[in-house]
Amino acid sequence: MKPLQMLTLTVIAAAAVAGACGGNPPPPPPPQPNADSIAMERARQDSMARADSIRRAMEEAERMRRQREADSLAALARATEAVKGMLATMIHFDFDRSNIRAEDAAILDSKIPLLQANPAVRVRISGHCDERGSDEYNLALGNRRAASAKRYLVDHGVDASRIDIVSYGEERPIAMGSDETAWSQNRRAEFEIVAGGDMLVQP
């Protein structure tokens, strides 16, 4: 800043101070309520504001709690659905066979931690066949397929008492038609949660 400018600012400031202190008397103060009533009113307003903000805060907290709850319920439901879906994934078999194929072993492997993380879950495995074999023999074959799936799970640490097996032979096809596409879909084991499936957690 240059010296001249500095001087000008100083003069203006001094004039302003002189103007404020001298000259006209101050206007009379407005009528004042007594000190007590002021305090009470202030306290009243303060308390209202406080109550209001508390209410708002509580509302907000409640809203957030609900949101969190909803979020977690949704998450839980999502988890439950995901676990159910993975537990329900079918496995398939070769014609007249009940051995577990490598890709189906992977499906069974993915069920094992889920079963262990949800110890209340009980599963029914049903074995199914395509239409080509003998009607009655297929009851035995379906049974062997279900038993084979169960044995795999039990061998990998799942409690045998949690798994039930049944066979439907060729009585419940999921794919109609008389070609390999339909047959290969029908040669399967299904996994149904029969108990403890309301709320499932992921491991």
Partner: peptide, 9 residues
Amino acid sequence: FSRATEEGT
């Protein structure tokens, strides 16, 4: 008759 169990039929 035949009976199917986990051990086979």
